[in-house]
C-alpha cells in the first residue's frame, strides 16, 4: 500500500488493548471476523465512537440498520456528538428517510447491498461532507460483508474491498469490515481475508465472555485475550 502524506497513526488501544493496534497506519483496512452474536458490530461501532471522541470523522456503511437508528446509536455512544462528523450509507433499500433522527449527519440511501456503485457514491459523498466539515482523518465501518456476500459473489466482494481500501488509503482513513465466520465456507473466508491488511478475530471464551486476537497488522499473530 502507498503511504499517504499525513502520517498520524491511529491508536485503537482504548477499544482493544493490543500493542499491535497502538499504531495503525492510515489507509489500513481491517477485517473483524467471528461467529454470529460475538459482538463484531459492537466492536466496529466502538472503534468509530472512539474516533469521534478523538475528533476523527466516522462513516458507517450498513446493510442491517437504518440510517436513523445508526445516528441514534452514535448519539448514545458519543454524548456530545456533532452530527456533521458522521456519515451513514444505508444499503437496506427500504423505508423512508427519518429526517429527524438523521439530523445533520450525512446520510445516503442505496437500493441494495449489491449496488456497489451506489455504495461508492454514498461513501464519496460522506467523505466529501466530512472533509467540508473539517475532518482530515476518520474511520469507516462496513457492517456487514456477510450480507453483501448474499447479494454478490465473493469475487466481486473481494474486488470491492480492494478498491475501497485504496480509496480509504488516499483519504488517510482506516476501515473496519465485519464478517460472520460461521456463514461462509473456509475458501470464501480465505479469499476475503486477502483483501485486508489485518484481521481481528473474535470468539466466545470458554469460561464466558469474549476474547480476541489480532493478525497481520504488526508482527506475529497475537495470543487470544479477553475483551
Amino acid at each position: 500500500m502507498k503511504t499517504t502524506e499525513r502520517q498520524t497513526m491511529y491508536d485503537l488501544t482504548s477499544v482493544l488493548e493490543f500493542d499491535a493496534l497502538s499504531e495503525v497506519r492510515p489507509g489500513s483496512s481491517i477485517l473483524i471476523s467471528g461467529p454470529a452474536m460475538s459482538g463484531k458490530e459492537r466492536l466496529a461501532y466502538d472503534i468509530l465512537a472512539d474516533g469521534l471522541d478523538k475528533g476523527d470523522g466516522a462513516v458507517v456503511v450498513t446493510t442491517g440498520d437504518g440510517a436513523g437508528s445508526v445516528v441514534e446509536e452514535f448519539r448514545s455512544l458519543v454524548p456530545d456528538l456533532d452530527d456533521s462528523q458522521l456519515g451513514v450509507i444505508d444499503c437496506r433499500g427500504e423505508g423512508g428517510t427519518d429526517e429527524e433522527a438523521i439530523g445533520n449527519a450525512h446520510a445516503h440511501h442505496v437500493s441494495s447491498p449489491g449496488d456497489l456503485t451506489g455504495i461508492g457514491i454514498g461513501i464519496t459523498k460522506a467523505l466529501e461532507g466530512l472533509h467540508n466539515a473539517g475532518n482530515e482523518q476518520g474511520r469507516l465501518a462496513l457492517v456487514s460483508l456477510s450480507t453483501m456476500l448474499t447479494y454478490t459473489d465473493k469475487k466481486t466482494v473481494f474486488k470491492f474491498c480492494h478498491v475501497l481500501s485504496s480509496r480509504l488509503d488516499s483519504a488517510g482513513y482506516i476501515g473496519v469490515f465485519t464478517i460472520d465466520s460461521g456463514a461462509h465456507d473456509d475458501q470464501t473466508l480465505q479469499v476475503i481475508k486477502q483483501a485486508f491488511d489485518g484481521m481481528i478475530d473474535v470468539r466466545d471464551a470458554e469460561g464466558g465472555g469474549r476474547e480476541a486476537r489480532v493478525l497481520g497488522l504488526a508482527g506475529e499473530p497475537t495470543d487470544w485475550q479477553d475483551i
Binding site: L116, T117, I119, T124, E128, K155, T156, V163, S166, R167
Partner: peptide, 19 residues
C-alpha cells in the same frame, strides 16, 4: 489510477458490469 472520486466510482461500476 483510483485516487480521485470519479476513478473510484468508475472502478466500482466496472466491478458490477463484470458480474
Amino acid at each position: 489510477g483510483i485516487e480521485d472520486d470519479s476513478d473510484f466510482i468508475a472502478t466500482l461500476r466496472g466491478l458490477s458490469d463484470d458480474e
